[in-house]
């Protein structure tokens, strides 16, 4: 899978110079399935298990075991108190057939557009512009635009409730101030508007993330490619589609994967802003998990939703990265 990786140490170029011409093709470090060769004397190997042990125990006890437990729970009808009854795959069948659950997954897909597509589109626009010019103060812009990311989602939600407030919220006030008073809305209270309004908050939060990732990617595209495109007479638009976009394939995949995961996991935002309402216009799977497990006593169903969610997240991540890799060939 594809992912962001951390900084290489800012190692002095002279201390660790890059591969020189004629460097011997050294055997690759076998990581992954390959069987390790006989161990060179003195090379630490088995001690590796010791280094991993504490992390692995924590992971096994608090992720692997609960995950197995979740699968088990998902096969029962259980209210959390009395004795459960065997459900088989019924809880999973409900995920597909129960209209309330189906719509919660549908909502999650709508939110994908606001969490993933829109932020990445904005990020691409900015990256495309940055690619063409030496932007002074880019670091400043990046810091500011990234800022919504670091604020707790609960705070963000509280804040946007104030902005969306129909009576004296900032958004309606702003519309009135510019003479568009007719457009004022009950943003979070309207059945049709509530979902996009929640989505808008997510876009506000995540375009900074997409922008940071994508502008970083742009700076790794060799300048010579742009020079070549310009020599070939490409204009700004051609340049974007011929150089910038293909060069950002990996970063786009990372940004889409991350934001997609955030979208599907979305709980706090909905919980604070709408509690799934009005009606169930903004209910999402994660909210259903919480609601069913801890409010309405449908623990098995909640577990099944959680597992389904994990599977969907996994499949979408794999799909995005497959597409990105295929494009790379």
């Amino acid at each position: 899978m594809s992912a962001i990786e951390p900084a290489t140490p800012t190692s002095p170029a002279s201390a660790v110079a890059g591969g020189a011409a004629g460097a011997e093709a050294k055997p690759d470090w076998p990581l992954g399935g390959t069987r390790p060769e006989a161990r060179p004397p003195g090379e630490p190997r088995r001690v590796g298990y010791l280094y991993i042990l504490p992390a692995f125990l924590i992971l096994a006890g608090l992720i692997l075991y609960p995950l197995g437990h979740a699968v088990y729970l998902s096969l029962w009808h259980w209210d959390g108190l009395t004795t459960g009854t065997w459900a088989g795959l019924e809880n999973y069948a409900d995920v597909v057939s129960d209209p309330a659950l189906r719509s919660s997954f549908a909502h999650a897909l709508v939110l994908l557009a606001f969490y993933a597509l829109l932020p990445v589109a904005i990020g691409l626009l900015i990256a495309g512009l940055v690619a063409r010019a030496q932007v002074r103060g880019l670091a400043f812009f990046r810091t500011v635009i990234f800022l919504p990311q670091v604020i707790a989602m609960v705070v963000v939600a509280v804040m946007w409730r104030m902005i969306y407030e129909p009576e004296n919220g900032a958004l309606n006030e702003l519309l009135r101030a510019v003479g568009l008073g007719s457009l004022t809305q009950s943003w979070l209270g309207d059945f049709d508007l509530a979902l996009p309004s929640v989505g808008g908050i997510a876009t506000w939060v995540y375009y900074g993330l997409a922008m940071v990732l994508l502008t970083a990617g742009v700076q790794k595209i060799p300048q010579s490619l742009y020079d070549a495109a310009r020599v070939d007479g490409a204009g700004p638009v051609r340049e974007f589609f011929a150089v910038t976009l293909p060069g950002l394939r990996g970063e786009i995949a990372v940004a889409l994967t991350l934001t997609t995961i955030f979208a599907l996991r979305n709980f706090d935002l909905v919980y604070i802003t709408t509690k799934g309402g009005p009606g169930d216009a903004t209910s999402v799977p994660a909210f259903e998990v919480y609601d069913r497990a801890f409010q309405t006593g449908q623990v098995g169903s909640a577990a099944a939703i959680g597992i389904s969610l994990a599977v969907v997240i996994f499949l979408i991540s794999v799909l995005i990265n497959r597409v990105a890799e295929r494009g790379a060939r």
């Binding site: 660790v16 110079a17 890059g18 020189a20 004397p41 003195g42």
Partner: peptide, 23 residues
């Protein structure tokens, strides 16, 4: 015979292509 002797016990020193100085 050094087949099974660790590098540190071999009484050798090595100069690497990229120098491998501790930055």
């Amino acid at each position: 015979v050094v087949n099974d002797v660790a590098p540190r016990e071999r009484d050798i020193a090595m100069v690497f292509q990229d120098y491998a100085l501790y930055p």
